[in-house]
Amino acid sequence: MASARTSGLPRWVLVPAAAGALFIVLPLVALASRVQWGSFWSLVTSDSSREALLLSLRTSGTATVLCVVLGVPMALVLARTSFRGQALIRSLVLLPLVLPPVVGGIALLYTFGRQGLLGETIDVLGLQIAFSTTAVVIAQTFVSLPFLVVSLEGTLRTAGQRYEVVASTLGARPTTVLRRVTLPLVLPGLAAGAVLSFARALGEFGATITFAGSLEGVTRTLPLEIYLQRETDPDAAVALSLVLVVVAVLVIGLVRGRSNAL
């Protein structure tokens, strides 16, 4: 209460704030309360569970790298340039945020599938993307990329361009300015965007199952494994759900702490 008064907030704000916190925390508490702790270890260390977790971590990490490689230039262009149709481009880039993941999966299938827009050309080269591990990475990247772009673009706009202008007037080349000034300046925002992208990729379900299917050891990520276990072994589904929550919290906590230290 005292800290709220000191910061100038009205006391009534605490009520909806507490309600919002409970709205998020209570389902997690309910989930933890349903875990069969006596058999927890055996449930989460089965062969299918381990394969699904490792596949999720591997594909989510790869998708996050792709988000950084593609998203940083996109955010720079949106934040540091002005061109006709920029608002439309920004809307299209952010579209996966509001699209149902299943719709995104269908769009990817008709793009990279065997009879898709690019699928026939890819098939001629002897490659098949749909229903493969590559498809999982593509689906996760598709839904995660906007999170990095939004986070980094906001950071770039907040940081402004005064340091970049000074560096340019001192004779630094654009690439040097980008590498030595811009990126270090927005590193916390980049780290936050990467964390959000990883967390979103880790929990991706709809686009993955539509575009990649559910092949054990190949495309069955942890969310898909949880869904399948929910039908056959609810206790295993609850245990794996808790594992996914813990992994997500640890990743976000560790990287957010690092970005705050920066």
Score class of each variant (00 low, 15 high):
residue 119 G to I: 05
residue 81 T to E: 09
residue 98 V to P: 02
residue 4 A to Q: 12
residue 166 V to S: 14
residue 74 M to R: 06
residue 105 G to I: 07
residue 67 C to Q: 00
residue 92 L to E: 04
residue 38 G to Y: 05
residue 50 R to A: 12
residue 143 V to H: 06
residue 231 E to A: 15
residue 227 Y to W: 12
residue 24 I to M: 12
residue 148 L to M: 11
residue 171 G to H: 12
residue 162 R to T: 09
residue 80 R to Y: 06
residue 255 V to D: 00
residue 31 L to G: 03
residue 233 D to K: 02
residue 84 R to M: 10
residue 145 L to W: 07
residue 61 G to F: 11
residue 158 T to Q: 09
residue 141 T to W: 11
residue 68 V to F: 12
residue 28 L to S: 14
residue 33 S to C: 12
residue 78 L to D: 03
residue 135 A to F: 08
residue 159 A to W: 00
residue 139 A to K: 04
residue 81 T to A: 09
residue 164 E to R: 07
residue 103 V to H: 02
residue 86 Q to Y: 05
residue 187 L to F: 08
residue 150 V to F: 08
residue 121 T to D: 03
residue 210 T to N: 11
residue 63 A to V: 08
residue 91 S to N: 02
residue 128 Q to W: 06
residue 5 R to E: 15
residue 64 T to N: 13
residue 108 L to N: 01
residue 216 E to N: 05
residue 162 R to F: 06
residue 110 Y to V: 15
residue 40 F to T: 01
residue 212 A to Y: 02
residue 169 T to W: 03
residue 10 P to S: 07
residue 161 Q to E: 13
residue 93 V to T: 10
residue 78 L to E: 04
residue 58 R to L: 14
residue 106 I to K: 05
residue 37 W to Y: 11
residue 109 L to P: 02
residue 127 L to Y: 15
residue 103 V to Y: 01
residue 66 L to R: 10
residue 178 L to S: 11
residue 201 A to R: 00
residue 28 L to F: 13
residue 171 G to V: 15
residue 249 V to C: 15
residue 253 G to P: 03
residue 200 R to F: 13
residue 252 I to M: 07
residue 245 V to R: 00
residue 29 V to E: 03
residue 131 F to M: 06
residue 37 W to Q: 11
residue 130 A to C: 04
residue 33 S to E: 15
residue 205 F to C: 00
